[in-house]
């Protein structure tokens, strides 16, 4: 989709539904600075870029990072591994709610420091209940607390993702390994995806993320943890820059209890498949029809 078609499409939808005005009102923060230059690769969605244009985009983003932050980063294009479909599971009997995963995600994915942003929230819940409405994320006492259990929530990488359907410009979509990605250069910041997500998994950059240069994670991939501009939406991408390289996600490695299980849903011998076969797993808000690839279980 070219920039012009995107604008026209928005206009057409707006004509019918009044969405454009809403989108514009909701998107006052999209920085119209350096990102909207005349260079072709910046006026196209990632999905329309040729391999050469992807390389130009990478060079551009690396240069921007050097110029703005004074940091050398290595950005890769990390497409899905053919034949692989990722899944995640979490052992609620082992998780202690320590939030090491929240902190690891914050660092790994170059999140805004002042707002302590992270793709993961940990809900403190009352034992024997799965009532999300009466959970809290701001607990601040020794964990695990008596009578409580802890439920980390992040993007479920739905088979049927409502955020993708809600996006008016196709800036977020599901890739072949099941990971739903976001094109930070294409997102218009309307936040429809955020409203559509029943897991509150999406995050909006209200400000230009601030990170001390020394803390920027230089191990980056497109559609993953490159430095985001202000005014775009984002969410957990299962650390695609790591997992498409065969590595484990940062939140899992950081977990001091080993409650997290990650792997290939199409490999019947993988740990994730064994957990799905040998434990009574469930997905969050299954009734929403989202068909998550993220599962929870208790030990009985």
């Amino acid at each position: 989709m070219s920039d012009l078609t995107r604008r026209l499409l928005l206009k057409a939808i707006g004509g019918a539904l009044g969405l454009a005005a809403v989108a514009k009102a909701l998107a006052p923060l999209r920085a119209d600075g350096e990102e909207t230059t005349v260079e072709g690769f910046l006026r196209k969605s990632y999905r329309d870029l040729s391999p050469e244009e992807i390389q130009s985009l990478i060079v551009h983003l690396e240069e921007m990072t050097r110029r703005v932050h004074g940091v050398d980063v290595t950005i890769r294009d990390a497409p899905p591994i053919p034949g692989v479909e990722f899944g995640f599971a979490l052992n609620l009997s082992v998780c202690t709610g320590c939030r090491a995963c929240v902190a690891a995600c914050h660092r790994e994915n170059n999140h805004d420091r002042p707002s302590a942003e992270s793709y993961i929230r940990v809900l403190e819940m009352t034992q024997g209940s799965l009532d999300l409405a009466h959970s809290t994320t701001t607990y601040d006492h020794p964990v695990p607390a008596p009578g409580k259990f802890y439920m980390p929530v992040q993007c479920m990488q739905c088979r049927n993702p409502p955020c993708v359907r809600a996006c008016p410009v196709g800036a977020t979509w599901q890739q072949a390994d099941g990971i739903t990605v976001t094109d930070y250069n294409w997102c218009i910041g309307c936040r429809y995806c955020e409203v559509a997500c029943p897991y509150h998994a999406r995050r909006f950059n209200w400000t230009t993320p601030e990170i001390p240069a020394a803390e920027i994670n230089p191990d980056q991939a497109l559609l993953a943890n490159t430095l985001r501009p202000r005014g775009v939406d984002e969410k957990c991408h299962f650390c695609l820059h790591r997992v498409r390289d065969g590595r484990l996600p940062a939140c899992l490695e950081a977990c001091p209890t080993g409650a997290r299980v990650f792997g290939d849903l199409r490999d019947p011998n993988s740990e994730i498949c064994r957990v799905l076969a040998e434990r009574r797993t469930f997905a969050l808000r299954e009734e929403a029809g989202t068909a998550p690839r993220f599962f929870y279980f208790f030990e009985d």
Partner: peptide, 28 residues
């Protein structure tokens, strides 16, 4: 039971690779 959970990766921490064709994995 905890031992079986350990064997299926659901109890006890790990680092490294989910894909052992690409690299090793360390376990606690």
């Amino acid at each position: 039971h905890e031992m079986q959970s350990f064997e299926i990766g659901a109890h006890g921490g790990m680092r490294g690779h989910w894909d052992l064709t690409r690299g090793p994995r360390e376990r606690d």
